[in-house]
Amino acid sequence: MSQRHSRSSWKAALLDPALGWLLAFFLAPIAVMLVISFARRGTYGGIEWVFGVGNYVRALAPDYLTIYVRTVLMAAATTLICLVMAYPAAYYIALKADPKWRSFYLLLAVVPFWTSFLIRTYAWILLLRTEGLINTMLVGMGLVSEPLKLLYCDSAVLMGLVYGELPFMILPLYSALSRLDTGLLEAAEDLGASPAQAFWTVTVPLTLPGIIVGTVFVFIPSLGAFVTPDLLGGSKSIMIGNRVQDLFASVRDQPFGAAISFLLTLIVLTMLVGAMRVKGRTDSLHGSTI
């Protein structure tokens, strides 16, 4: 008993540096933000310690609802596209690829991280713009008469988000698929299931935890994205991240910015708890963990 106890506290101590870090740089700032969000903007951009819920009322104005809806839709679309694109890739790497090449394929998925996201986004601008590489080529080959509108629209933002988040979907899916017991698939086949049936009734449910983790990994950063809508969307149809950045950096309305950030944090937390619940249930069903 005491042996067991000391071992588990030994393990818990491993968490300490990370916990200390999170406490100092995650929870404390959120607490500060919460307090500020009830204050109001001083005349010249400071914080006036007059408390009220005015910021939260403002945050529910119709314009903001439009922005929230767009942000959530954008993040949801990003997640869905990532899932549809990443699942086959992860499936191939985990189950079909030559094991010799497996780590090479995984490496390919992470290679983009070696370059700054900002620089990669600027590279997309060079490719997509009206006088850019793709349009020049298309016009030059006579495929289109007018340059296409590839940049500064919602689809450009979506493309950029999917591009940025895709690896975060591939990796958890790979992890789930690589631990899939292929014997179960053979059993399904022996019992007369078609490959499609086996996929939907065996593979997908067993990799559900991976799907949930990937969804969380992709959905949450997309929700807070601001570089992509700014650079690839031309800042025309903004997401909530742009608004927060604007409020802090140029309007200097910190209390209102804090209120919106806090609302966003709240939404994310609710979703996380929900996702963890679902994952917990499937974990106990299938006895697998990620």
């Binding site: 000391s6 506290s9 030994w10 101590a13 491993l14 300490d16 540096p17 990370a18 916990l19 200390g20 870090w21 406490l23 100092a24 740089f25």
Partner: peptide, 18 residues
């Protein structure tokens, strides 16, 4: 300061147990 402090406190707790 705070970051290093947090790390060291963590490391010390670990060390005190080990």
């Amino acid at each position: 300061v705070v970051g290093a402090f947090a790390c060291v406190v963590g490391a010390l707790v670990l060390a005190r147990i080990l």
